[in-house]
Design a protein around this nucleic acid. Structure first.
Lengths: 236, 236
DNA sequence: CTTGAACCCTACGTGGCGGGAGGTCGTAGC
DNA sequence: GCTACGACCTCCCGCCACGTAGGGTTCAAG
């Protein structure tokens, strides 16, 4: 404890020395000291000075407020611990990914950070959880297969775009159907899945360049493809 | 995200819009936006703005600093989680104790809070851990037996004090020996145990009134007994 | 042309103290 | 009695990542 903390407690009225020496020095009585002990312990338990003041200034013979406060604090700590657990998991994922690939793309980690922000902006936490569940259900080979399949669709789409096939063409509309079916494999059924699908679609529309950056094609070509597919979707 | 955060990032030089409209409005380019995404993600991972600036302003093609930072953050989160776990355990202990006894002493919870502070002041964390280990090793019946035994010693001591037996008397010195032997049951052997014993002794000397408050005798009688025992210890 | 939303800048507030400036008090040694 | 030196006092600024309020400008729609 530093004396500065005691001054602070004095300033905010949490604990002041009941007496002063003639020279103006603080003299803490035994009662003050007992109060200080309580304050210090409650501080180490993570309570705010305001909460401590509230519970120490209440009726001394009623332990209820204190028990309520401690119970509340226990719940807050639980939530905090859960949050920390999620953050740890996320960081471990990042480190694993960076260690896994260690490919020739030194920018990949940065791109992943950007995509995480985009995902958090467009999808709620539970939507992201559902997606993770779905990916887990598909298994790693299922995800790999979908990636491969999707790569084929992208290449097919790029060929259509760049050979000048109009978006209203049946080939383009069929590509959109297969594209959506593939995407649907990652979304659960029902209205909640529909909402997630819509949110993901908005995310693609607004950030196709950013998302395209994580793919093995130039980002502008991906952005063009997304616009083309949207046209075809409107047409069909 | 609020616009205020963007102003803040601008102020501290973390992220400023590269362009401005003629009217003075901020225009964020795509590069700015990508930087913002990285900032936001790193913020959610619990990094400080200063750390983020440091790692984003470094060489863009070297992922090492970023990996170091994430590893550091992972360790910090681990430590934080451990701390939270300890706090939860402590609060649960308090609630359990308050629920257990629910005796006629409404002040007991407050006294416990005071004693916790005293313990933390005089004993280091690992010393307290050793004591807890020792208590666990003795088992609850062992602790209960020691408590009962100790209660007998206290009563015997109070009789000696209050019947005017001098501290130099052999009966007092014998009581001290048995008292210390009983206390020794809670301390491990070796120099570390000796240090803990000495610290606990200072704690008793300085706070006998406070500690006595948790006992079923008036605190002043306990304080008197402690002084008497110390006299006897000096004599023997 | 008006209206309301969006943007700008400045400045103060938050929590729990840390740290420093500049002055007073208390005690020990000469 | 004087002088050091530490301990104490009050007052005030700083931290961190913004939130909030106030007062003025700009922009797009009706």
């Amino acid at each position: 404890m530093t004396v500065r903390a005691l001054y602070h407690y004095d300033e905010i009225g949490l604990l002041s020395a009941s007496e002063r020496t003639p020279a103006g020095h603080r003299r803490y009585t035994e009662r003050d000291l007992r109060r200080l002990y309580r304050v210090r312990t409650l501080r180490t338990l993570g309570l705010s000075l305001e909460e401590i003041a509230g519970v120490l200034d209440g009726a001394a013979d009623d332990p209820e407020p204190m028990l309520d406060l401690l119970t509340t604090q226990l719940r807050r700590l639980d939530e905090h611990a859960e949050l920390i657990g999620m953050l740890r998991q996320r960081i471990r994922g990042l480190l694993r990914q960076a260690g896994d690939s260690s490919g020739p793309d030194p920018d990949q980690l940065m791109t992943t950070l950007e995509l995480m922000s985009v995902f958090e902006t467009y999808l709620t936490e539970e939507q992201r959880e559902r997606l993770a569940e779905r990916r887990a259900a598909l298994g790693s080979e299922g995800v790999e297969a979908a990636k491969h399949e999707w790569k084929g669709l992208v290449e097919e789409g790029l060929r259509l775009v760049e050979t000048g096939v109009p978006a209203e063409d049946e080939r383009a509309r069929d590509l959109v159907r297969r594209w959506d079916a593939l995407a649907g494999r990652f979304h659960p059924d029902g209205p909640e899945g529909e909402r997630t699908r819509a949110a993901a679609h908005r995310m693609w529309q607004d950030n196709s360049a950013e998302i395209g950056r994580s793919l093995p094609w130039p980002a502008e070509r991906i952005a063009g493809l997304v616009a083309y597919l949207e046209q075809a979707r409107q047409a069909g």
